[in-house]
Design a protein around this nucleic acid. Structure first.
Lengths: 225, 225
DNA sequence: TGGTCACCGAGTGGAATTCAATCATCTTGG
DNA sequence: CCAAGATGATTGAATTCCACTCGGTGACCA
């Protein structure tokens, strides 16, 4: 299942995600506690064997409490997914800030590094590969699909003068899909991640994007316009 | 989710897949009828919302009949998956037979064409993207993961003299993962398949493999040994 | 006409989800 | 600063839904 990996939107996140916005401060702790519990359970039994009871018990709460915050079981998974994505984005900007970037490639590399790092350390991070596929096409699935690609496009345009536009976004969408698949494959059985697939992922991304956005290609492009 | 797409194994297929081998001829019809029903339901509600009752009703059978042939719900999905894979392979060989192949690229192209064709016409074909992810690492997940890659490797080695070996298999595994992801993305919302992703898939595959197995690269390789 | 093969569908059990009762924390008038 | 409400938070028994079982019934075959 493609998509769902690096991608997500922000607006739709809180949209009916949480039943009741936490008012008192203890609720916030409860909420993140529930997600921590869910993450732990995901690591233990996988995210289709998860039960609401497990999450509740692990969080030291009762079943009812889970349902106070989330309308149903998959909503919990969605929330966990969202949190993972948020942390991923944070990690990316950290990574970007800590590195000296000499070309767009370094930025792409940072993204891969951030993803791999989280896969290794963040409990339940495999949830980023969760995408519940409905038969009925999810209403705004496409709308939020390319969110991350757009984000990344902005960075590449502003920092490295790549040509903005729908084409760049599409290319990045493709790149994200490929990276997602290869990295997920790297961690499919190996908890540390199969290095062969990780390095091949970097290679593929670079080659693919180089085809359009290498210095030479850009130079050529500039000459034409 | 990675793997599971174009891949599958053959040995594990019939292994505990069907509870009772059909003895009388009407049973065979029942069996395929159940799978047809399952395929229809998959198209309607997606393959995680599917219920045994839905399949039974759709097939004009009772719950018990479903369980006469399949030990549990996921076994039905596995069987449907297997059938899809079998039909896919058949389609690939048909396609290969009908085309005049001038290079390994044509063979790869045929595979993509077959996959896209089935996605468009075969009910429930999206099941090829089904891979039940357990928390406990599936015992032989890796073992059957590269089955299709090996198969394809055989063809490419025998027909187009690509250099056999673990490297080729790994490359094809990577290629399969990428193609799987991009094609699944193409059909994620669009039932006819987003042509942009399909053509980009062909492009990516060609570029990726060309890097190692283009005539020039092969020539170079031959010179070194 | 007995012996399998197929089939049925009410029944069982476990997990998902609800909800009315209870506890905890705020807040407001005195 | 302190009662009571008022409102948020929590609980867990009850309910619903769904996978799966099994004893009984008809269909085929020899």
């Amino acid at each position: 299942m493609p998509h769902g990996g690096l991608l997500s939107n922000e607006t739709g996140a809180a949209l009916q995600q949480v039943r009741t916005e936490p008012i008192q401060q203890r609720s916030a702790a409860r909420l993140s506690g529930l997600l921590d519990a869910a993450a732990a359970v995901v690591d233990e039994v996988g995210f289709d064997r998860i039960t609401t009871a497990m999450v509740a018990e692990r969080a030291g709460a009762s079943i009812g409490t889970v349902y106070r915050y989330y309308p149903d079981r998959v909503a919990v998974l969605h929330a966990l997914h969202e949190r993972a994505v948020v942390r991923f984005r944070q990690r990316v900007v950290d990574e970007l800030g800590a590195s000296t970037l000499t070309s767009w490639w370094d930025a792409v590399d940072c993204v891969v590094t951030a993803f791999v790092g989280l896969y290794r350390t963040e409990p339940g991070f495999r949830i980023v590969n969760f995408d519940d596929r409905h038969g009925a096409p999810t209403a705004d699935a496409v709308a939020d699909a390319d969110f991350f690609a757009r984000r990344l496009a902005d960075v590449l345009v502003n920092e490295f003068n790549l040509p903005a536009g729908a084409e760049l976004i599409f290319r990045l969408e493709v790149a994200v899909e490929m990276a997602d698949a290869l990295l997920a494959r790297a961690f499919h059985t190996d908890p540390v991640g199969d290095e062969r697939f990780i390095t091949e992922c970097r290679l593929v991304l670079r080659d693919y994007l180089d085809r359009f956005y290498s210095p030479q290609a850009l130079h050529l492009l500039a000459a034409l316009s």
